[in-house]
Structure formats: C-alpha cells, structure tokens
Write a protein that binds this DNA or RNA. Structure first.
Length: 478
RNA sequence: GGCCCCAUCGUCUAGUGGUUAGGACAUCAGGUUUUCAUCCUGAAAGCAGGAGUUCGAUUCUCCUUGGGGUCACCA
C-alpha cells in the first residue's frame, strides 16, 4: 500500500438532488485524482436522520454517472475502506468519541435544547459571539455519573483549548490563522448517537486515507475544529483545499432562490454533460492560456490545484447556454440524433420517419442551444399548427391567398420534385405574382411553419415533404 | 456584531515590478441571411480608494472601503 497515494473524496449530503456547486466540487476532486493517478471516492454523509430524503442517494449516484464522474470507491462499487455511508459507520464514530471523552479531549454535555436556545438568544441580544458557555465542560465524574444513572440524554462536545492559535496552510489560500478562543466546543456526537459532520468527516477522512480535502470555502471556519480532532486522535491531517464559492448574480452564495441549481434540471433542459462540466470547470479554475473549450479528457491532463482562484465566481447561465450551443454544434449527427431522441419522445412526437427526423436534427443542430430547443424549433413539422389572430390575418389577406393558390397549382402539377425545384418555385412565384419580401415569406412561413421567423422556406418545405406542404397550404385557402 | 476569506471590463477570467492590461459570455455596430438563429468582422467596457516600498506599481506591504462565508444535536 502506497501511503503517499493521492486520495480524494466527494462527500455530499443526500438532500435530493446534485447542486451545481456540489458538481464543481466533485469535478475538481475527480480531476485532481485523475491528473495524479489517484483515487476518487464517493462518500455519503447521511448522518442527519431528520433530513433523510428517500431515493436521494440513488439519484445522486445516477446523476454523477450521467455526468461521467466515475468514482473508484463508494456506494454500489464498494472498496476497501467501506462502508461508504456514514449512517452505517455509527459504531466507529462512537468508539472515537468515547476515546476522546476518556482522554479528556471531549466531554458529555447534558444541556437541553431549550437551554441552548435561550443561551443563543441572550448572546444574540447582547451582540456577543454565539458559543456554548461551557456549563458541562467541567462537570465532576460524580455529577456525570449521576446524570447518566438518571438516564439524562447527552451529547459529546469537543473540549477546545481556550487559548492559543490554530494555524494551517490552505493549498489555495496559504496561511490561515484562528484564535482558539473563537472556536466553539462543537458537538461531536448527537444525542441520537449519530455523529455531526465534524467528527464523521475527520474520522472517515483518516480511516479512508484521504490525502487532500477539497471542498467549498464555506468550510474554512470549521477547519480549527477539525484540526483539533486530528491532533487529539493522534492523526496527521490531510491537506486542505478550499474552493471559491459559486455565486448568485447578486454575489451571494449560489442558491435555488435565484435560478436552477440542480444538475438534474440542466440535464432535463437538454444541456450536455460535457458542456456543463466544461463550464463548471472554468468557475474558479483556468488553464494557462486563452483556451476555454476543454474536453474532460483534456482537463484530466491539464488540471492543477495551482491554477485555482481565490475569489468567488458568479454562475452565469447565459455563458453556460452559449457553451452548450458550442458543444451541440460540434456533436456528430449520429450522436445528436441519439441524444435528442428522448426529448422528442417526451413531447409525444413520433420520429419514426428516419429521413425527416434526420433533417430536423440537422436543422436544429445549427440553431439550438439546448436539446429542449431542438423540439421547440422543429415540433411544427410534426404537430398541428396553431395561429394567433395576427397570423390569421396575414394568412387571409389577398397577397397570401394568391401565393398559396399559385403554389398549390404548381405543386399539384409537378409529379416529381426536389429541393432545387422548390428553390426555383420561390423565385418564380415571387416574379409571377410580383409579391416580395415580408409579404411573401411571412405568408408561407406562417402557413407552413407557424412562425414569422425561422428556417428558410426551402428548408421548411424540404422537411415537410410535398404532401404535407400541400395539405398545409390548402388548409389556408378560403 | 465576532471571526475568517476575497477584490482586473456588467459576468467568467489571463497577466506582469516597466504590456497598447489579453481572451470569452453578454451588449452595441457592420457583414452574411427574405426573417430569426448560426457564422464572420469591429466597437465600447476593467486593475475599488489611500498611503508606503521602488527609478517605476495593476502587480509587493499596510490601511480604508466594498463584497462574501461562518457562527445548529445541518451538512
């Protein structure tokens, strides 16, 4: 066993969906592992029974898979350091919590939630730092025993030193320093026997031989608690790498109140996994040159912690959309057809007719930014058209009627026809009827496509085919 | 409020003790297109402020300001 091996983990709490911030964290962990021949581990931090969401873990795993972030150890794939669900490791945490109590590094606290709540309110009122006041910190053995015998419930708290400093070196931020007096006697083991994040992540990261803890910046302030635990347990702590936060447009921490944050939602809308990954990779990280389009394979090669930025990054959905368009445009036709298929199916559009489907995909591939837009751009070739009053007026006017009649005549007379014939017909009918520009194109586009703006008339007719074109034109004749 | 983190165009960012401060999204203008979209070309847009170090600071230091995170028997 090589103890120097790079081992990192993504340790989400299964809340129901994968947050894009979580995805970014997962990606950076994944890339760091891959670029260093290391291991990437998925660990489920499900120690909060009150927040249990059925199916959340399954969904998380499936989303990670869809995104292509395969892990080496974790749920379903297993590994030497399992189990990878914290809820299945409670015995382990308890053992270490007890050890800490025995050695005086932690203590039992019998304070009720009510007392704690009051305490907090008071401290808030007096504008003091909200912290545990240490009521149970120095209970005598006898007092503890009495309460235990009385069956009082308790939690286990860390006995953080009241003086001194805790210093650590963050891989992206450098030296970070805290006064121990600012650090709270954090609860390590809850009264229900489950550990808090702080205990669980320290114990697991050590037992799972994690070399680098790569996580969001919101964790910086709890680092001293973790360092206290590592040293109290006699362990060396892993390297800490705190990633800059992903931000809302107003610069606050990215939240669902200001737009979609679930990766699943972007997938549903038809964003491509590689495009999402590429975009998210560029939030807080940048390659050494002006390049912005990176395949995941390329990222696995060039990724480096050294190029991580310190400042938070606004999650700009406009740019994501642009990037997705770039990926769509360079996707091959066979892949594109395959990827778009479920979106047509969901819209109840029958795409059995291969040639027509291919033409639709070809068309949308040039215009759409998401897979959902493929359907929006081409559904009118399949579904009945609906017209607004304004559109009806245009369809009814004399000029339009003349065009329709001319076209119906021409198409009916013509036995065989092709794209060239249609192109000619467009020119020919314009000249013959002396109707040009908007009057001409809008009439046809509305009648055949249902919109004033859109693809060229020749393309529309080509996709519809002669029958359907005729049918739609006839429908507009008074 | 205490503590911690951060600061280059509106946004994502590159960059250096001496640069015309570079790229991308968005915006605007022009071209292509019957239109829209795509695509191409161009423009506008930035080193938060103040001291200090230095021959010279966007870059190094300090302060101010601004923004953010965190202060749970949630992670």
């Amino acid at each position: 066993m090589n103890f120097d091996k790079i081992r990192v983990r993504f340790a989400p709490s299964p809340t129901g969906y994968l947050h894009v911030g979580g995805l970014r964290t997962a990606l950076f962990n994944y890339l760091f592992a891959r670029s260093n021949n290391g291991d990437f581990i998925l660990r489920i931090e499900d120690t909060d029974r009150n927040r249990f969401v059925p199916g959340a873990t399954e969904n998380l795993v499936s989303t990670l898979q869809k995104m292509g972030l395969n892990y080496d150890e974790g749920p379903e794939v297993g590994g030497k350091f399992g189990p990878y669900f914290q809820s299945q490791r409670t015995e382990i945490y308890k053992q270490y919590a007890d050890k800490l109590v025995e050695e005086g590094k932690a203590y039992r606290c019998f304070c009720s939630s009510e007392r704690l709540e009051n305490l907090r309110e008071q401290q808030l009122e007096n504008k003091k730092t909200v912290m545990y006041d240490g009521k149970c910190r120095n209970l005598s053995e006898q007092e503890v025993q009495e309460k235990l015998d009385a069956g009082e419930s308790y939690v286990i708290r860390a006995r953080i030193p009241k003086s001194g400093k805790t210093v650590y070196f963050d891989k992206v931020r450098g030296k970070v320093e805290f006064d121990n007096s600012e650090v709270d006697d954090q609860i390590l083991l809850k009264s229900d026997g489950y550990p808090t994040y702080h205990l669980a992540n320290v114990v697991d990261d050590h037992l799972m031989k994690i070399s680098h803890v790569i996580r969001g910046e919101e964790w910086i302030s709890s680092v001293p608690k973790h360092i206290f635990l590592y040293s109290s347990l006699g362990w060396k702590h892993p390297k800490f790498v705190h990633l800059p936060l992903l931000l809302n447009p107003d610069k606050s921490k990215l939240s669902k109140r200001q737009g979609d944050v679930a990766v699943e939602r972007y997938l549903e809308k038809g964003y491509l996994p590689d495009a999402i990954l590429n975009f998210v990779a560029l939030l807080g990280w940048h390659g050494p040159d002006d390049k912005e389009i990176y395949s995941i394979k390329k990222l696995e090669k060039v990724f480096s912690l050294k190029r991580i930025k310190k400042a938070g990054a606004v999650f700009d959905r406009e740019k994501l959309k642009w990037m997705n368009g770039q990926y769509i445009r360079k996707t091959s036709m066979p892949d594109m057809k395959r990827l778009a298929k479920p979106f047509y199916q969901k819209a109840n559009i029958d795409i059995q007719e291969e040639e027509k489907y291919e033409k639709c995909i070809q068309l949308a591939k040039k215009r759409a930014s998401t897979l959902q837009e493929f359907v929006a751009e081409t559904q009118m070739f399949y579904l009945p058209l609906k017209f607004s009053d304004e559109q009806k007026e245009i369809l009814q006017n004399d000029k339009s009627q003349k065009i329709f009649k001319y076209w119906i005549q021409a198409l009916t007379d013509k036995k065989s026809w092709d794209l060239n014939y249609v192109k000619n017909l467009i020119k020919e009918s314009q000249a013959a009827l002396d109707i040009k520009g908007k009057d001409f194109y809008w009439a046809l586009r509305i009648a055949l496509y249902g919109e004033t703006h859109g693809p060229g008339i020749d393309t529309i007719v080509d996709i519809l085919g002669k029958e359907k074109t005729l049918e739609r034109l006839m429908k507009q004749i008074n």
